[in-house]
Design a protein around this nucleic acid. Structure first.
Length: 678
DNA sequence: ATGACCAATTGA
DNA sequence: CAATTGGTCATG
């Protein structure tokens, strides 16, 4: 194209022409807008537009044309013209007049009159976005599943009339005090709040189902969030056992778009009032919510990996606060957050008396303490000591035996036999592992075989296995118990249940199958390994994994942990003192100004961007800024910490920071409030 | 994001 | 002096 210099005296004129044509376009729009007949009642729709920008994260007003008067209902999906583009949004409200001074654009289209965003969930998404300093559109994506037109055409048949047996509920809860009072309170339409530490060998899905039934009996809905799909299936089965078919829905991520939307609609239409699901279900639009339940809130599956990274427990607690619902935070283990709810008096405790716990399980530890090993280095603890062997053998006389081993694979990591330098891949420096008894060392990252490995430090060619995986454990146990069937359940192939017959089940944490009637014995191997991590939650997490496996015993069953009997986490396991352990951890956290006594947030991004984010951040007075520290990927991170009482102020400051940065088109930084790990 | 506008800076 | 660049503002 040839560049012709514009005639100088044409330019002002051109500008005027541009302005004229813009004015004309505006006039045309205005004419069109007036041509559109506004709805007779509440002609203004307040719309949350789906744009990813923090500073546009508020409702905008649009004119409702007569033709859409009855379909543009609060909560429905619409398409609107926004900043010159067609974008999707939700109507959050219909009002008579607009605060907006200018002329309103009409709604382009009502995508569907289905009110998928209920007022309660709309308020919840706002509260969650505030708490996590994220955008509402991000939270809305987590809360409302994608539309499926076919599913929307189908009706949601109503649930049958509920028949609730409160006596059955009370007797199921017998042993957990004051379980009956909790149930009665729910059945009377109250909203009690409790932190529940389930006794070992408790059929927790059944007890949870009974709390839902008690709530349902009072005419209110209930919502249960559990870590994974297998737990959803168990609670769903218990709900059928307690309430019968047709009262609940199960919401999981692996349903597929059509089924997921169908189940969601059954809830939003009020045809189902009891919901069990994984973390996304925390936003399910249950009508008249009377109870929220989170099971095993320490499981990291409850931490949403997508922005703004909300945690199921926090979403549910927020929700209970907004909707006046009761709360049950349950688990075999107890998180410091749950302990804090008790300490602050916000929730009551539901627990089993010592006697019952002692009847249910006998826990022992086998192994030399660190102190003993220091005194006598030759007293090397065997990985499967004789005592563990005996426990398995004895258990097999009565039923299945669970062996928990912390790592997946055969030999998941290798080191030089002589100098103990970790063996790394020559191609990519990834960790070398063995996949089977006869396989050569192979890189876990790039898959390259390295049959001729030699130690780069000392030249030695021998390898040792500092850690063994579940496959190798199964192989070893197969040799020791030659006539016993051995099953594996780990990441790659998780088994949901095993029958009540003598067999050895080797499983990794979180993948333990449930045994019919419970395991005769549970053996926990390599307890030192989960304790070797350097993290705020190391001990809490280790104990959680152990008690979750140990709780699968049959009443009166035996548990043996192989490790250092002097370690506080193992002592807590032996005494089954999850409450005391969580209480002590909480005290330490309070003293060290760590969550949940403080609220922490991280800001991550390019060093320059993080740097001016801190400058821009109007953090509360008491805020401490720790860092920045450089991360391996060239980014850097700061931690901001405030006392718990100033948590909302910190969230607000971070939220405002994101709005300002977004408006000024500054480089994005990632903000995480209460990150799951540090 | 996208676009518009204004002011300051750069360059011939 | 014109052209370019950068910051600010608004999006209904």
């Amino acid at each position: 194209m040839t560049q012709r210099p514009p005639e100088p005296d044409l330019l002002p004129g051109m500008r005027r022409t541009v302005r004229d044509s813009r004015a004309k376009a505006a006039a045309t729009r205005a004419r069109k807008a007036t041509e559109v007949e506004p709805a007779a009642t509440d002609p203004v729709a307040r719309v949350l537009v789906e744009v990813p920008l923090a500073h546009l994260d508020r409702p905008f007003d649009y004119l409702v044309p007569t033709a859409m008067a009855d379909t543009a209902v609060p909560g429905c999906r619409v398409r609107v013209r926004f900043a010159g583009q067609d974008v999707d949004g939700f109507v959050v409200e219909r009002v008579a007049t607009s605060e907006h001074g200018g002329r309103l654009s009409p709604l382009r289209r009502v995508v569907s009159a289905e009110p998928v965003l209920t007022p309660a969930v709309a308020a919840l998404t706002a509260a969650v976005a505030d708490r996590y300093a994220g955008t509402r559109s991000d939270v809305l994506r987590l809360a409302v599943p994608p539309r499926h037109a076919t599913a929307e055409k189908q009706e949601s048949p109503p649930a049958p009339a509920p028949v609730v047996d409160l006596d059955a509920a009370r007797s199921a809860w017998a042993g957990h005090e004051p379980g009956a009072a909790f149930l009665d309170h729910l059945a009377a339409g109250g909203s009690p709040r409790a932190v529940w530490s389930a006794a070992p060998a408790t059929d927790w899905p059944l007890l949870i189902a009974h709390t839902c039934a008690a709530t349902y009996a009072a005419g209110r809905g209930a919502l249960v969030c559990v870590p994974d799909h297998r737990d959803v299936d168990r609670v769903a089965a218990a709900l059928v056992a307690v309430l019968g078919e047709g009262h609940h829905v199960a919401l999981t991520a692996d349903l597929g778009p059509s089924a997921r939307y169908r189940e969601f609609l059954a809830v939003s239409r009020g045809a189902r009032r009891v919901v069990v699901g994984t973390r996304a279900a925390a936003f399910a639009p249950v009508r008249d919510l009377g109870l929220v339940v989170v099971w095993d809130d320490g499981d990291d599956l409850h931490a949403e990996p997508r922005a703004p990274y909300p945690h199921t427990r926090e979403v549910l607690l927020t929700r209970a606060g907004l909707e006046g619902a009761g709360v049950l935070v349950g688990g075999f283990a107890r998180t410091v957050e749950a302990a804090y709810l008790l300490r602050s008096g916000w929730a009551h405790e539901l627990a089993a008396p010592r006697d019952l716990v002692r009847q249910r399980v006998h826990v022992a530890v086998a192994g030399a303490s660190d102190a003993e090993l220091r005194r006598d280095p030759l007293a090397r603890a065997a990985r499967v000591p004789a005592q563990a062997h005996d426990t398995i053998e004895e258990g097999l006389r009565h039923g299945p035996v669970l062996v928990q081993t912390p790592r997946t694979g055969y030999v998941p990591s290798l080191a030089c036999e002589r100098c103990r330098t970790p063996a790394r891949c020559t191609a990519c420096a990834g960790p070398l592992a063995l996949r089977g008894p006869t396989d050569p060392p192979r890189c876990r990252w790039c898959g390259t075989d390295d049959p001729a490995w030699a130690c780069p430090t000392c030249g030695h060619r021998g390898l040792r296995a500092p850690v063994l995986g579940d496959h190798r454990t199964a192989e070893e146990l197969g040799r020791s118990f030659a006539r016993t069937p051995i099953r594996s359940s780990s990441d790659d192939r998780v088994r949901a249940t095993v029958a009540a017959r003598p067999e050895i089940v080797v499983a990794t944490p979180g993948a333990e199958p449930v045994a019919e009637g419970g395991y005769a014995a549970v053996v926990l191997l390599d307890t030192w390994l989960p304790l070797a991590r350097a993290d705020l939650r190391t001990e809490e997490e280790a104990l959680r994994r152990w008690v979750n496996a140990a709780a699968l015993v049959a009443p009166g069953g035996r548990v043996l942990a192989v490790g250092d009997p002097a370690h506080p986490a193992l002592q807590a396991l032996v005494r089954w003192d999850v409450a005391g352990f969580a209480e002590r951890e909480t005290t330490q956290r309070v003293e060290a100004h760590l969550p949940p006594a403080s609220r922490m947030a991280t800001i991550t991004g390019e060093p320059g961007a993080v740097d001016d984010a801190i400058t821009l951040l109007a953090a509360p007075e008491a805020a401490e800024v720790l860092g920045p520290v450089d991360l391996p990927d060239g980014e850097c991170r700061v931690v901001v910490r405030v006392p718990r009482a100033q948590g909302p102020a910190l969230s607000a400051a971070l939220h405002e920071l994101q709005r300002v940065r977004s408006a000024r088109k500054l480089d994005a930084v990632r903000v995480q409030v209460d990150p799951a790990t540090l």
